[in-house]
Amino acid sequence: MQKSLHIDPGKCTGCLQCEMACSLENEGVFNPSKSRIKVFTFHEEGRFVPYTCTQCDEAWCMHACPVDAIVINAVTGSKDVKADLCVGCKVCTIACPFGTVNYNADSGKVVKCDLCGGDPKCVSSCPTDAITYVDANATGLDKMRAWAAKTDNSVSADA
């Protein structure tokens, strides 16, 4: 079963545990500026929104790459950057409509979310379940359940 990151901004408190878990896993350092997931704060509205790659099926980044350095991970379905092939041309960062592929000046390569190979650390570090890793074919389950719970069984259509 393929799984997908599922983000519920309503649960996010903006603590950045996900950003640090991401940078630790991928760069070996606690460093939000090196994270592949970003939490955006909308102060006036009182909202926190985590944002990262959605792993598009027809991934713009993958199609745009001139050296085929972005490949599909057969197990997780993630689009992974092959660092040894990437030439740092940044065309994928332009192609991505969502801004979730970014250049790392220290390495001269691009970086993006690779779902940590199937065990995303942003998920295990999140204290409020704002980020979960769920069945890719049922990411709407929580919302469906919430609406289903509002069903008023006391009024029957037959009555």
Binding site: T13, C15, Q17, G46, T128
Partner: peptide, 19 residues
């Protein structure tokens, strides 16, 4: 109260965000 908010790395998140 609109919601609670956390400081850096805080998994308690006692902060108040209000209007």
């Amino acid at each position: 109260l609109t919601r609670n908010g956390g400081c850096f790395a805080c998994t308690i998140a006692c902060g108040r965000i209000s209007t």
